[in-house]
């Protein structure tokens, strides 16, 4: 079983619903250690993605991911636009023109996306950023795929690891991004970017699991 454009679109739509439902929570998290616009930015970005999908549904998983990337880059302000945009862009390019992605291809796309975020944002593990959710997620996805895991299992492994990774940002002192301006005062708060990653991966896993 592998996932086609139809499932990727469903996953993205579910991601948009989750971003909308958690908008205020993300705003609150970002208000504590950032500039307070993360929830609004992510919600606006994914709404724009859904609006694009209403116009035309791309034929391949790669094309869907590319549409998500370009739309997020254009519509999300702040650091999240270039970061999430780069993640989806690199993932799209690794997915290529394939009609469908199996667990291994999915993990490879996720890896490319995460590498893109690292290159763009230049954050290290434990800097209290989205990387702290993404790196464990991609490792879990690769392990799952390596054991022959289907896309659903691969995504759910990634989502679980991302959730743990996101929670691990709470005690950390931020060393990258706006929160780093706060120094020690950034400790004790969940990183909003890591939270978004965990929410999105859980949403994607949710859809794949239901297929």
């Amino acid at each position: 079983m592998s996932c086609t454009a139809r499932e990727v679109i469903a996953a993205v739509r579910r991601g948009a619903e989750v971003m909308s439902a958690h908008r205020d929570e993300l705003v609150e998290l970002d208000r504590a250690i950032g500039d307070g616009d993360h929830g609004e930015n992510m919600d606006r970005g994914f709404r724009a993605v859904v609006a694009q999908l209403e116009l035309a549904e791309p034929p391949t998983p790669g094309a869907v991911l590319k549409l998500v990337a370009t739309t997020l880059i254009s519509s999300v302000g702040g650091a999240s636009g270039p970061l999430f945009g780069t993640a989806f862009l690199r993932a799209a390019s690794t997915a290529g023109d394939a009609e469908s992605l199996d667990g291994t291809a999915l993990a490879a796309s996720l890896r490319a996306g995460v590498d893109g975020v690292v290159a763009r944002g230049k954050a290290e593990p434990e800097d209290k950023t989205m990387i702290d959710a993404l790196l464990p997620a991609v490792r879990a996805a690769e392990e799952s795929a390596g054991r022959g895991g289907e896309p659903a299992a691969t995504l759910s492994a990634a989502a679980e690891a991302a959730e743990v990774g996101a929670r691990s940002t709470v005690p950390l002192v931020a060393r990258k991004g706006r929160a780093s301006y706060l120094g020690d005062r950034s400790a004790g708060h969940l990183d909003p970017g890591a939270r978004s990653v965990a929410l999105l991966l859980a949403a994607f896993a949710d859809v794949e699991g239901a297929e």
């Binding site: 702040g78 636009g81 270039p82 970061l83 780069t86 763009r120």
Partner: peptide
């Protein structure tokens, strides 16, 4: 600032 660099690079 930082995210302006990312937008410029992109």
């Amino acid at each position: 600032l930082g995210s302006a660099r990312m937008t410029a690079e992109l």
